[in-house]
Design a protein around this nucleic acid. Structure first.
Lengths: 264, 264
DNA sequence: AATAAATAGCGTACGATAGACGCAATTGCA
DNA sequence: TGCAATTGCGTCTATCGTACGCTATTTATT
């Protein structure tokens, strides 16, 4: 867990300039050029290293990352241990460090690969484009529920994550909004989406969500929490992802209202 | 890591009915009545156990939980280990298990205690009340930035967390919204708030936020991500928590717009 | 063709984690 | 005065990430 400490530890800050890296958390296998100084950034942007001398690698970086994703999909993020990943790939634990500097970097690679780049989102109107953006983002995230955890940690964004930004911001091109406001819109939407992904599929277990654990408690203490008890009783049979649409629609209603107010 | 697996493992589902608990993940120290069958729920609602026979406990549950909170405030959630907590309290690691069944339960207790119950939120209008609700929620969460992580995991809500629901729902009493919609409003607001808390204070380190790590990357690849590069360049000197107000205001604008549409 | 230089795989550590188990000392109630 | 409950905690295990260095393999150079 210590190693999973978020923040700019280890090789994360190496992306901040290329020079001055190799600090205290110097990567394992400093002798492995495949990985070396540039650290995470080189991995995320898959900078090739054509120098070929020693034995041929048995694996590829993509295999390692995909293996991690497969394990996470099956049994959750915590099941992705170097040992289990190695077993799956038919290698030993330590062999993996020839491909990935450490667990933190593996996480970053898994995230960027699992989310993927946004597809072509139909829509000429900003509003339907942003709605599609949020819905597609949701779909990607629920498909790999563990990715939410990684996405909301401090991390170095990968190329595909930046693509999401790009597409989202492009949808707002020409609107009467400042740059900060555009980013705030995406933050509001993505925060909502990620929050809902968590509720939808917490640990993949049935009734693992908040409503599932809150209802039996409220049954015993309905008098202390009248509004809450009533709300959860009424809403128990609500549509599956109605909350997702509701939040997106309300957020964009709000943006629209602000722009109209600003225009008139 | 295995033990920190989120979801209804261990004693979490014990809250789901009282009966039928004590499954596979039976709590440590099954011989300790202080903790025993009821598990987390009994702890969260601080059900007393007046039976006094053996030696007097050196500590109290509150001391243990507060100790954990203090460590998390200082050095983050990952620094809260049973060992360190024991050192701080002048006890041994294993002694703590007399007060708390395990790490997961400690987390739940820390969360409920750190967030606390909402204070008296001034406001007669629903809108200003909900704004105050969100802002106060933000303040509480930033004061204990680690709490976001716990709040967004699957967990059993404690009494104070339910109080937040209650206050938020009460603010919407009488509005033309369904129960599901009221819950969705709170989900949208809280998702936004928690998301912003993460951005504000990721791992407590300077420049640990997304903008901090994204800017240097964009400097190298501005041509591939023109909108993103431009947006972050413009917005770099924006107000601190302007994004918080923006999201809250937009969300509530959206709710208002929907109600007006519905009314007329 | 022979040699040197890289590079991959990985065996063997180490320190830290959460937690199981059981013993010994302490205390209240009969 | 004992008996039963209860606390503190010493010991032990399984698992985690990963540092270090050896060996085998492959290519580039001579």
């Amino acid at each position: 867990m210590t190693a999973r400490e978020a923040g700019p530890a280890g090789g994360l800050d190496a992306a901040a300039g290329g020079a001055g890296a190799a600090g205290r958390g110097a990567a394992a296998n400093a002798d492995a050029p495949h990985v070396e100084s540039a650290g995470l950034a080189a991995l995320l942007w898959s900078e090739e290293r054509p120098v070929k001398r020693g034995p041929k690698p048995k694996l590829t970086l993509a295999q390692v990352v995909d293996g991690g994703i497969a394990i996470a999909d099956d049994d959750g993020l915590d099941a992705v241990t170097m040992q289990r990943l190695a077993d799956r790939l038919g290698a030993t634990k330590m062999a993996l460090y020839r491909y990935v500097p450490g667990r933190a970097e593996l996480d970053a690679l898994m995230l960027d690969r699992a989310l993927g780049a946004p597809g072509e989102i139909a829509g000429v109107q900003w509003r339907e484009t942003l709605t599609g953006w949020a819905l597609e983002f949701f779909d990607r995230a629920v498909a790999h529920a563990w990715s939410v955890e990684l996405a909301q940690r401090a991390h170095t964004p990968g190329p595909r994550e930046l693509q999401w930004f790009e597409v989202g911001l492009a949808a707002m091109d020409g609107l009467p909004l400042t740059s900060a406001e555009r980013l705030d819109v995406l933050a509001l939407l993505s925060g909502h989406v990620l929050s809902l992904v968590r509720r939808s599929t917490v640990s993949g277990s049935p009734e693992g969500d908040l409503a599932g654990s809150i209802v039996p408690i409220l049954a015993l203490r309905a008098d202390e929490y009248p509004f809450t008890a009533a709300a959860f009783e009424d809403a128990s049979d609500g549509g599956r992802d109605a909350g997702l649409r509701f939040g997106i629609d309300r957020a964009l209603d709000g943006v629209e209202a602000m722009m109209q107010r600003r225009a008139g």
